[in-house]
């Protein structure tokens, strides 16, 4: 009986130590493990010009502009507090649209424009049939 209690105590201590170590590691990783910078993060971190990063947020409604060359687009990515103009030359995924999530890979140009060389669409956690599409998905929440 005594040996069993000893093992139980040892097991619990080990578990607490493992969870503690995990949480410590996670909090240290908090910035490094982020998949993308939001416009606010990018401003706060002061990302230098030319450094390759990913920028994620919502595409501002009405901001998508097609350049005359036909393959370049401009749009604005926002996270409700900051916004960044983005330029991209290439083919965007089908789900890339205004008021929807986006992750752009690229770097900041000297004029503060984010020059993307790859665009990924970010789907949010809301799923609904087409007839319900309406005001429901236009809340523009950034995750």
């Amino acid at each position: 009986m005594k040996a069993k209690h000893q093992r139980l105590t040892l097991g619990i201590i080990a578990l607490i130590a493992i969870i503690g170590a995990g949480l410590l590691a996670m909090s240290a990783l908090k910035d490094q493990a982020a998949y993308f910078y939001s416009p606010s993060d990018a401003k706060k971190a002061g990302v230098p010009t030319g450094q390759a990063i990913r920028l994620g947020g919502m595409v501002t409604g009405g901001s998508i502009v097609h350049e005359p060359d036909g393959v370049t687009i401009r749009f604005v990515v926002h996270d409700n507090s900051e916004s960044v103009p983005v330029r991209f030359k290439g083919i965007v995924p089908d789900l890339f649209k205004e008021n929807s999530g986006v992750v752009a890979e690229g770097s900041f140009a000297a004029d503060g424009t984010f020059v993307a060389d790859n665009i990924l669409a970010k789907h949010d956690e809301r799923y609904m049939p087409p007839q319900l599409e309406g005001e429901m998905h236009k809340t523009g929440k950034v995750e």
């Binding site: 908090k30 493990a33 993308f36 994620g56 970010k122 949010d124 956690e125 799923y127 049939p129 995750e143």
Partner: peptide, 25 residues
């Protein structure tokens, strides 16, 4: 998906309910 910015969407089904419409869910 909660701690870090991620490409994967956040949880759809939580204790507060589901953001998946019941006709799909």
């Amino acid at each position: 998906v909660v701690w870090w910015n991620s490409l994967h969407q956040g949880p759809s089904i939580t204790l507060k309910g589901s953001t998946i419409d019941s006709s799909i869910l």
